[in-house]
Simulated scan of single mutants.
Amino acid sequence: MGTLTRSGLTVIRSESFQASALQTEDLLDKLSVSLTGEELDIIEKLYHQAMKLEIEFFLAQPIAQTTLAPLTKGHNPEEDRLVIFSDFDLTCTVVDSSAILAEIAILTAPKSDVVQPETQIARMSSADLRNTWGLLSGQYTEEYEQCIESIMPSAKVEFNYEALCKALEQLSDFERRANSRVIDSGVLKGLNLEDVKRAGERLILQDGCTGFFQKIVKNENLNTNVHVLSYCWCGDLIRSAFSSGGLDSLNIHANELIFEESISTGEIVKKVESPMDKAQAFNDILMNYSSDRKNLTVYIGDSVGDLLCLLQADIGIVVGSSASLRSVGSQYGVSFVPLFPGLVRKQKESDGESLNWKGLSGILYTVSSWSEIHAFILGW
């Protein structure tokens, strides 16, 4: 395969070439209308392979200028360490884990007319549980919105990490109170550990999430560590979710339900409850690494609870479109930039050699899917 020449690049970037490519795709769409599902699956695999080969072709070209993407292109495992942090709920998952635990509790709770053995942990009936969960959820939503409103500055300010930390201390206090209410209510009593693990194994993750982490941890040419930081009440749920995809090596930092003989007592070992806890865990993890390699940190998150870590990381990537995250961040001077246009701008502004990423820049990059993260970090 020859080197891509300047004239070749000119052809590929030309309007006529782009128009031809669009015409070809339109033709393929029309021709595929009559195909069966099985035939479409074959076409999809062939198209995916073609795209993969095309990307590999471009990546194989000698480039004199240092490039931003893929992030791991110049990675030297002897000198570099890529540390990837990720939130779990609604960053990796489609449904919040608290809703999963609530569903398990309600479905496995005794009926109101069933007498419970004295040897078992006393549980609410399924009807009472459903009502209690509803009340807790409603109270949380109402007070969360009030808390977010109370920490917003009256006018937009310049980016100031310390001021943001001070504001989010109030949110941290709220999150701790909310967790205490859950524990005191007894709604988490009597959950069976095996039920929790089964739910984790069946938990639906965001498209591309599992595949991304699988590629990261299995790549022997990368020196990478992955840490999941989560408010989730039960670390076993997270571990089961990732284990089902062969991702036992991920480091999970979450709260833990206390089980006695595989039955939950309703108590929680509180480890990560708030934005401040996440930021502390983030810093502690990095402090524990030796200085023999240069760390490059990436944090992937979706909510206000991730904001401090997103900003501290060398590269903060926001998944989804949380309104509260955008509004709080924007009022405190944080810029939200779509990832790939942001990369193009950063590449143009560079001098071709120094492309250093640096935390606390006040810039976060936004994506709509894990495929964008995959493409940015790994290339394909």
Rank of each mutant, 00 (worst) to 15 (best):
M1H: 09
G2Q: 12
T3Y: 07
T3E: 13
G8N: 13
T10E: 15
I12C: 02
Q18G: 06
E25N: 07
L27F: 09
L27T: 08
D29V: 11
V33T: 10
T36I: 00
G37E: 14
E39G: 03
K45V: 01
E54W: 10
P62V: 10
I63K: 15
Q65P: 00
T66V: 09
T67N: 04
T67S: 11
L71Y: 01
L71S: 02
L71D: 00
K73N: 03
H75K: 05
E78D: 13
R81E: 01
R81L: 12
V83C: 08
V83L: 11
F85M: 00
F85L: 00
S86P: 03
F88G: 11
D89E: 01
T93F: 07
T93S: 11
V95N: 06
S97Y: 07
S98K: 03
A99M: 07
P117K: 14
S125I: 02
R130E: 15
N131E: 15
T132W: 05
L135T: 15
L135A: 14
L136I: 10
T141R: 15
I151G: 01
S154H: 12
E158M: 06
E158N: 11
A163Q: 14
K166E: 11
K166T: 06
E169K: 06
D173A: 13
F174D: 07
E175I: 03
R176L: 06
S180M: 04
S180Q: 15
K189T: 08
G190E: 12
E194Q: 15
V196A: 04
V196T: 10
D207A: 09
T210I: 02
T210K: 10
F212A: 05
F212W: 08
F212Q: 07
L222Q: 08
V226L: 03
Y231H: 08
G235Q: 01
D236L: 05
F242P: 03
H253K: 14
L257A: 06
I258N: 11
I263E: 12
K270Q: 11
K271M: 05
V272M: 12
A281Q: 10
M287W: 05
Y289W: 12
R293D: 08
R293A: 06
I300Q: 00
C309S: 15
L311I: 09
I315M: 14
I315Q: 08
V318H: 11
V319D: 00
V319G: 00
V319Y: 07
S321W: 05
S321A: 15
S324P: 01
L325V: 04
R326Q: 11
R326E: 03
S327E: 10
V328G: 03
G333S: 10
G333P: 03
S335I: 01
F336K: 00
V337F: 04
V337E: 14
P338A: 04
L339A: 08
G342P: 07
S350A: 14
D351E: 13
G352S: 03
N356S: 15
N356G: 15
K358P: 04
V367Y: 04
V367K: 02
S371Q: 11
I377N: 10
L378K: 12
G379I: 08
